[in-house]
């Protein structure tokens, strides 16, 4: 269990460090240039040009976040199952139920 925890922590840290020092450094993020963004799906036309990182970069970033969170959720679910078993295993009048 301890090794798994360390694995999760390392995975999260490596996700961030690879974003900073790996193929996608902050300075070399492949920005999509001249993207016209319409604010929050509003119907009329806006001309302001703001730049977001490219779609491929954003998908990579999403995976860096989502995978550790999913692993964390998986371990939470195991813990829930363990706790539920201990509740069910408690003898009656153990003071657990009000």
């Amino acid at each position: 269990m301890h090794a798994l925890r360390m694995f999760i922590i390392l995975m999260i840290l490596s996700s961030f460090s690879s974003l900073q020092t790996g193929s996608h450094t902050i300075d070399s993020v492949p920005y999509e240039s001249n993207v016209v963004v319409i604010s929050a799906g509003e119907p009329f036309n806006n001309e302001t040009k703001i730049e977001f990182p490219s779609f491929s970069y954003r998908v990579t970033l999403l995976l860096y976040f989502v995978i550790p969170v999913l692993i964390l959720v998986f371990f939470i679910m195991i813990k829930i199952r363990q706790l539920d078993h201990t509740v069910n295993d408690d003898p009656p009048n153990s003071g657990l139920s009000s």
Binding site: V37, N46, V66
Partner: peptide, 24 residues
């Protein structure tokens, strides 16, 4: 916490794949 994990993933999907824009 389990639900928060899924909510966080949903939030990230929306925020990263459909980033909030800025008008003129």
């Amino acid at each position: 916490f389990r639900i928060w994990g899924f909510a966080f993933i949903l939030l990230l999907c929306l925020s990263i794949l459909m980033p909030w824009g800025l008008g003129e």
